[in-house]
Structures are given as structure tokens and as C-alpha cells.
Amino acid sequence: MKALLSHQPGGPESLRLEDVPVPSPGPGELLVRVRACAINFPDVLIIEDKYQLKPPRPFAPGGEIAGEVLAAGQGAAGWSVGDRLIAALGFGGLAEQVIVPADRAIPLPAERSFEQGSALLMTYATVIHALVDRGKLQAGQTLLVLGAAGGVGIAAVETGKALGAKVIAAVSSEEKAAAAREAGADVTLIYPTGEVEPKALSQLFKDAVGAAGADVILDPVGGIYTEAALRSIAWEGRFLVVGFPAGIAKLPLNLTLLKNCDVCGVFWGAFAARDPKANAAHVAQLFRWWSEGRISPRVSATYPLERAADAIAAIRDRKAVGKLVVTL
């Protein structure tokens, strides 16, 4: 079978498409034919050895997949050959076949495409955990979403609206603003990129959220945008740290004192491992919202396996709107 492998730390150009042996499922495992693998920012980091998870090389990146069961190991109860599923694996998804622990596999309804199914977990499950568990977002409150046209961003806009919030979407272009509005954002703002004057940037956020400030801010961007956004937070607001494609920010902690606010880390993978029942309840809620049309994973482009490195490069360069998916 074919797999896109990382042999040494490097960018997408360092990945190599190779023939590898087909794995065999052990106890409690499924052998899955991968039909779609969504690309996320951790795929950029993991091949550069900059992610918290560092698998032994060679390995295939690709943290979330959708596919069909080819074989089930002993004890993989409840699964049969041909069953459709989605799973978040951390890595290994950019291969024609992959081993999936049965207890991490989630059935994919027949009416849902593999492409959309692969794009659900790492964005929407992260966001529902962030907004509900960490941000305590309530109906009627104001949510500010940075990077609101990326995979996490669009998921946050839709999930925020499903929870009854007023959603302010911050993006870097008019094209991305249109995508955020299509996802349901009440207000959009376009922030500048490159050299930015910090006070002017923070004023943009303050003007967009209004005098009362944002009750919850979801930040999957980092860099200079973090402090500027924090300055627009409401009294006792919650600032959710999700990612850092623009760089890891340093915050003046006096801002948290002045607003009596919380800065909360969001690590969905560890949450799902530590509290699988709570995560399963969130995923069930996501499927209900999906069936009601309140959320819908947006796949803006698909790539064949031999061009998966291009998809990772597009995520690295922050060119993607919604999710990019590799189809097999």
C-alpha cells in the first residue's frame, strides 16, 4: 500500500510517497481503508518535530480520517467489515490503510460523505470542548473568533451560533469574511497582516465587540493578535488559547487583573483521552447539530494522496478557507 512518510524533520517538501507493508489489526483494533484524511495545523508541526506528539520515524502525518473497516482484531466488538467510521488518530492517516483502535472509532452515517466526516472531529470537537467546558459560553453572550475562516474558526462560528451566542468573526481578507458570514457570523472584521500597530489592532477588536467587550474569545491564531484581542475582553471574560500559527504570544498579566478574566488552555486530545464519556457526549451533540443543519464541515478543496504535501503547505501558509481533505 502507499503512504506519505516523514523520514526526517522538515516541511511538506520532505515527505515521500512510498510503498509500505499492510498492517495487521491486533486485539481491539480495526484495519481501515482510508477514504479521506483531513489536514490540520498539527500536521504542519508534527513533521517539523514541533508538536507535543513525536511519533517514531518513519511515520505518515494525518490526524483524522474517515474510511471503511477491512478487518477487525479479536475483541473489536461491534464492528464488521464494510462499516463506515471516522477517527482522530494523531498521525498515520495519510496512508491507504491504517490501524484504528476500536474504542476511538465513531460510526459515520451513510448519508454523510467521507470527506465531510474526516473534517469533523479535530475542529468541531475541539471547539465544543473549548466553548462549553472551558469558555462556559452562554446564549446571548458575545463570542469573538480569531482566524474565523479556517477549519477551527468556521467550526467556532457555527458552534457559537448553535449555542445562541452573538458571534464576531475576525479574519484577514474579504474572501475569508464572506466565508465567516456564510457560516453565520453576526459581525465580521478584517484585521491587517504583516507589520501592525498594536494599539490600532486592539482598537479594531474593541470597536467590533462593542463597549461591553467579548464574553469569550477563541484564539487559534496567536502572535500579535492575542494581546490585541485580549484587550477587548469583557469583565470576567474567558480567553481560550487554541493554537499559534502566527507565533506563541506573551501576555502582560496585568490585563487579566484589570478585566478579572481567565486565560484558558484548550487541549482537546488530552481531554478526550482523560474523559472519553464527556467527549462522546460532545460528539453526539455535534451529530445532532449536523442533522439539524446547524453545523456542516466545510471542505473547500480536496487533494489526491500524491499531492497531500501541497495541502499541508497551504495550511502552513494560512491560505485555506475551511478544511482541506486528502481523498484516497
Rank of each mutant, 00 (worst) to 15 (best):
R238L: 02
I106K: 07
G213V: 01
W289N: 04
L144T: 00
K277Q: 13
T126E: 09
P55F: 07
I154Q: 08
E292S: 07
A200R: 08
P55A: 11
I217Q: 13
L163D: 04
I99V: 14
A284Y: 01
K166H: 15
S24R: 15
I39P: 11
A308Q: 11
A76D: 01
L121S: 07
A130S: 02
V34R: 14
D133A: 15
P58G: 06
L324G: 10
V196Y: 03
F271M: 04
A162H: 06
I315E: 02
G237R: 01
A280G: 10
H129L: 02
V127S: 03
G243C: 14
L30K: 05
L108R: 15
L258E: 14
G322R: 00
C261E: 07
I315K: 05
E96S: 14
T302Y: 05
G92K: 06
G78E: 00
S80C: 08
A272Q: 08
T126M: 06
R274F: 01
E68P: 03
A311G: 14
C261M: 03
Q203S: 13
G223M: 05
F114I: 07
L143C: 11
E115P: 09
A311K: 02
K277H: 09
E174R: 14
G243Y: 02
A270C: 07
Q97C: 14
A200V: 03
G269L: 09
I224V: 15
A148P: 10
A119Q: 07
L30V: 09
P58R: 12
Y51R: 01
C261K: 02
P61E: 07
D215Q: 06
P42I: 08
D19M: 12
P245I: 02
F239R: 00
A72E: 14
E175I: 15
D262M: 12
R16A: 10
R33V: 02
L253F: 14
A162E: 11
A214G: 06
R288D: 15
I295N: 08
A313C: 03
G184W: 07
L70R: 11
I99F: 10
E175V: 13
C264W: 05
A309K: 09
D49L: 14
A169K: 05
P27V: 14
A280Y: 00
N279C: 15
I233K: 02
P276T: 00
V152H: 04
I224Q: 15
E96M: 11
E174V: 13
G75C: 03
A102P: 03
A314K: 02
D219N: 07
